[in-house]
Amino acid sequence: MITLKVNGREVSVDADPATPLLYVLRDHLKLNGAKFGCGLGQCGACTVMLDSEAVFSCVVPVSAVGKRAVKTVEGLGTPENPGPLQQAFIEEQAAQCGYCIAGMIMRAQALLERSPSPTEDDIRAALAPNLCRCGTHMRILRAVKRASDKGSA
């Protein structure tokens, strides 16, 4: 059994140590926010947070997580009570098909936690590893801006 701390909760999963964290989140813990895109750390749909860092969960073996806290998009709020960043994405209607959005949100969350007032360039640079195929980039940028200190000021 492997013990993990996910969204503030201790959980134990019966998984091969080589299993990607993404599979454990989706298949064992039924946290289906993070998506499987490429499986090669190239698209960002699987992005979650490990402690303060955004990571591609498809290329992190569950055995490598150790004591570090895993945070997924489900950890930021609920449909009834979305977190500030989730609310900003809703208000900007930043999702089209939505496949990339959980990853976008988690990478943006990591950015805002270390830098609450990012410039547009900071946001663009931080989100560069995450791809969106529908083309809602401008709305995604606005949503992150809205959730930042500068956006609410």
Binding site: G41, D51, V55, F56, V59, G66, P129
Partner: peptide
């Protein structure tokens, strides 16, 4: 580099201790 084509490899700074 920004705006240039090329291959990409993810960094593991946050993923690995």
């Amino acid at each position: 580099p920004p705006g240039e084509p090329g291959r990409s490899m993810p960094g593991y700074a946050g993923a690995l201790t």
